[in-house]
Amino acid sequence: MNDSALTPERILAAAEEVLRRYGRGKATVVDVAQALGVSHGSVYRHFASKAALRDAVLRGWLERMMAPLRAIAASRTAPPARLRQWLATLRSIKRDKALGEPELFATYGALAADAREVIGEHVEHLREQITSIVAAGVASGDFRQVDARATALAIFDATSRFHYPGMAHLWGTPGEDAAFAQLVDLLLAGLAPTTAPPRRRKSAG
């Protein structure tokens, strides 16, 4: 490839393909440069280091996962149904990757372990989306009056069993769907507006 045609997007696409084919150990700047047919110096003009290149690849992968979640969070679906759909979609995205492409999922997991800043940004974006859904539910009266941010953090932590990569070894076991549905039902029940219990009629005696 002519160096003048080299762009960050082309480099990232090549890096992803190298990761897919050979795993994390071969995703060096030199490996990516060889795949593109350019010198490693050409790649360094766009990405200052191997870590910068890997972080960019990871960000792109996470961004693609975020797109459907962002759309759900911004939708006008009733907040309880929106929260259920958002949590189910997050779980489905992670589960499909882990069970459908386990080697690639493990490769990206290894990249994530070395990219705390990127993962921190990703987790914060997820929490912000939950916060927006909870806040919408409080405003509409579908949820009781709660601190939207604190509640979002609690929901994220409570459901981590179903989306944290470290728990992926459990995602294919029997009963997972039922356990997830039960947890979401419990969370939504806890967010439901409270109603005063009916007054007891005084006895005539």
Rank of each mutant, 00 (worst) to 15 (best):
M1R: 13
N2H: 13
N2W: 12
S4D: 14
T7V: 11
R10V: 15
I11K: 07
A14Y: 08
A14W: 04
E16K: 11
E16S: 13
E17M: 13
L19Y: 10
R20Q: 14
R20V: 12
G25M: 14
A27N: 09
T28P: 11
V30E: 15
V32T: 05
G37T: 06
V38M: 11
S39V: 12
V43E: 04
H46K: 01
A48D: 11
S49P: 07
S49I: 12
K50G: 12
K50C: 10
A51Y: 08
A56P: 06
V57S: 04
R59T: 07
E63Y: 04
R64K: 12
M66W: 06
A67Y: 05
I72K: 03
I72S: 01
S75E: 05
R76F: 06
R76W: 07
T77Q: 08
T77D: 10
P79W: 02
P80K: 02
P80L: 03
A81S: 08
L83K: 01
Q85R: 14
Q85H: 08
L90S: 07
L90N: 07
S92E: 15
D96H: 06
D96E: 12
K97E: 15
P102W: 08
P102I: 03
L104F: 08
F105Q: 04
A106I: 04
A106L: 13
T107M: 04
A115L: 07
R116K: 15
V118H: 11
V118R: 09
I119W: 08
G120Y: 08
H122M: 13
H125Y: 13
I130C: 09
A135R: 09
A135N: 03
A136T: 00
G137N: 02
F143E: 07
Q145W: 00
V146W: 08
A148C: 06
A148D: 04
A148N: 05
A152W: 00
L153I: 14
L153T: 12
A154L: 13
A154I: 11
A154Q: 09
F156W: 10
T159L: 05
A168H: 02
L170Q: 10
T173R: 14
E176G: 04
A179L: 11
Q182P: 11
L183N: 01
V184M: 03
D185Y: 02
L186S: 10
L188C: 03
L191F: 02
P193K: 00
T194Q: 14
T195W: 08
A196N: 06
A196H: 06
A204H: 12
A204Y: 12
G205T: 09
